[in-house]
Nucleic acid binder design. Sequence first.
DNA 1: TATGAATGAGGATTCATTCAT
DNA 2: TATGAATGAATCCTCATTCAT
Lengths: 224, 224, 224, 224
Amino acid sequence: MNAPREKSQPRWTRRKDARPEEIIAAALELFVERGYASTRLDDVAARAGVSKGTLYLYFENKEDLFKAVVRGNVLPVLQHGELLVENFSGSSADLVRQLVLGWWELTGSTKVAGIPKLIIAEAGNFPDLARFYHDEVILRALSMFRRVLRRGVEAGEFREVGVDNLVHVALAPLVMLAVWRHSFACCSREQPEPENYLESYLDMLLHSLRNPQPTEKKHARKKK
Amino acid sequence: MNAPREKSQPRWTRRKDARPEEIIAAALELFVERGYASTRLDDVAARAGVSKGTLYLYFENKEDLFKAVVRGNVLPVLQHGELLVENFSGSSADLVRQLVLGWWELTGSTKVAGIPKLIIAEAGNFPDLARFYHDEVILRALSMFRRVLRRGVEAGEFREVGVDNLVHVALAPLVMLAVWRHSFACCSREQPEPENYLESYLDMLLHSLRNPQPTEKKHARKKK
Amino acid sequence: MNAPREKSQPRWTRRKDARPEEIIAAALELFVERGYASTRLDDVAARAGVSKGTLYLYFENKEDLFKAVVRGNVLPVLQHGELLVENFSGSSADLVRQLVLGWWELTGSTKVAGIPKLIIAEAGNFPDLARFYHDEVILRALSMFRRVLRRGVEAGEFREVGVDNLVHVALAPLVMLAVWRHSFACCSREQPEPENYLESYLDMLLHSLRNPQPTEKKHARKKK
Amino acid sequence: MNAPREKSQPRWTRRKDARPEEIIAAALELFVERGYASTRLDDVAARAGVSKGTLYLYFENKEDLFKAVVRGNVLPVLQHGELLVENFSGSSADLVRQLVLGWWELTGSTKVAGIPKLIIAEAGNFPDLARFYHDEVILRALSMFRRVLRRGVEAGEFREVGVDNLVHVALAPLVMLAVWRHSFACCSREQPEPENYLESYLDMLLHSLRNPQPTEKKHARKKK
DNA sequence: TATGAATGAGGATTCATTCAT
DNA sequence: TATGAATGAATCCTCATTCAT
């Protein structure tokens, strides 16, 4: 599949720019599969196709690599969502749907979806990473979702709910879906397919939000 | 041969049968706080007030102790719920409420609530433990909750929903609550109090289940 | 030579009290032979007849062991000298002679004599150890020697000399003797035997101290 | 392809012949500061302003560089002394004085004075270097000093002493002065200034050598 | 000639497990 | 049964050395 190497393939080639990403990718896979402590740097190096020492050219130590894995794989997902929220002009229910389904489409099949599991498992051991994740990911995600819910409420599309508390509840099933895939994936045959799970989730959430008297409030009818 | 014991040895002196329980209790705390790999048996022994060697009198090895911790702290919770479901005679909404609030009251402030976090983190490394937990805890919990939802639907109290998929979604926020407390507890000041979270959760769930035409009678149509 | 072991000799025996000393002795030998960095803890353990892990039962790490080696082998030598000075009643020249020859007899054939070499080599890398050695060994030795010289001067046995500066000079050849033995021992065939070296040293020192007009009486003039 | 160089590139640009010298100078500093093992070639390269690979263009390996450092910084000092001895026409006491003070003036403030410390520390690990240093430096220095002492004795200026043994003793304080500066420099505030130390040294040495009956022997009165 | 990315052997350290007491 | 000293395999990390560029 690769371009065929020259006859005398060198022991190694220099690819300074590519290496960090490759290492992070390899580390992500292994951290997600085995957890932080059970992941040997030897294995990370092997999977990245480099030697053990090379890791230390780009990362100070195991912890530093771990943090790089988290930091490097976490923001893109959010940005995608925030962009969508910013520019969406349909109904809020549709926005929720697209947000949720798009998120899963983007990361569901990826190891990136295993990061929440990692964070949950290691938050206690890496307090500053926990704080980073909490502030830069969780709070932002909550904030984004909160805005979406408010949008629906203000438009009279959703009933009046305590948005601040609800967002936590509403996001939980999504996090769990990601977590689940990377812990019980093996032995859960009973688990519904993610698509069904998400459908059920959206059904539940939107039902619970539906305004029984959708008196058009405000001027906020950005109907498509 | 031994030094003669005091004549009136207190009846409640540490019975030798209590040892395993004490060890398990100590191990539970540490596993939940630090995770499996970061927990040293030295520390478990110290917290249990025994010597390191003693652990091996009761447990084959660290993994065995880990499994004992999980197995020993997981069934009581379920049984409580199942008993409640079996004997409840009020409305299904009330049953849901009591189930959820009772569960949290029972375990919320306990380290037991940290077990899901542990399982999530280590499922990949201990497949048989994962299977045990999945079969004996998750499936039973799902089954129990499913029965409750069916009860409501059949009574016409809840609308017709795809119960089999919904239970997964419906349980997720509860698991997340338990998980959260033992990972981001430290740095989340924004997190709502569990009571508010659960209230919001019940509000959402029950709203989404409410039957808009609750005229139907009991023992009614199990429509496909 | 040892007591014959039982037929089935145990893999190890427990000798908590003896171990630290044995380890320090083994470490002293190797540190002196090879220097700090070139000494592998594996080798220390092997020479002490214990396993690698055992070292860490008694010492925090390599540096800690190093410091223990220095601290544990340094004070006895001084104490011996100080005791002698305190109680000596002969001429000051004889005191100097006994001090010097006794010191060498005590430590000359020992690895302890290699400690100055170690300290000299590693002072820069272990500043706190250097300070300890400086304060607790060097300053005390200087102080002791200074007292001896003053004793001779005040008795009119030695000429008036700038004692404070002289002690440094006077001790140097002794330190060098110890250092030499553990660096150029191998290749120096030309080196005089320690006995001859010390004889020459004493001859030089005492000659240079001899008072040309030794008529003065005791408890005499502390001329400025 | 490169940016065009300035038209008049300075003639005294770093000649390639200078490279080894610069590397040796950088290595000398670091070896003296930290010792052989604790000196990283990375740091040597950095201080020399070259890349790590460049070291290997000029030196086979770390050991080779170490030897070059020693060999390259050791002979000049001797030669200066030998020249002085050869041509000196004053009294032997003056010769001793000039030799000693000149030596310190020449190297005292230099890292070169740290080489004895290095050799002492590493002699055991580099036997051939030790032999080289012993034969080419120590023996030569002893020989030179021995000639000076003989000169004084033969001239009747110094008393009859066992010169062969004395030289070792007599050189020791000088070596120690050099060694000291590069180990306890930091924490020795009590240490006398080198000038005072040397004055005291010369006072002691020359006092001990003074001939009480300076019967002019031989024809050897090269008085100034 | 010069560079510095890549290598990998080597060593310090940890900790689950064993076993003499 | 209980102890905790002793073990040694496992793993992180360093740094001298190599080599593609």
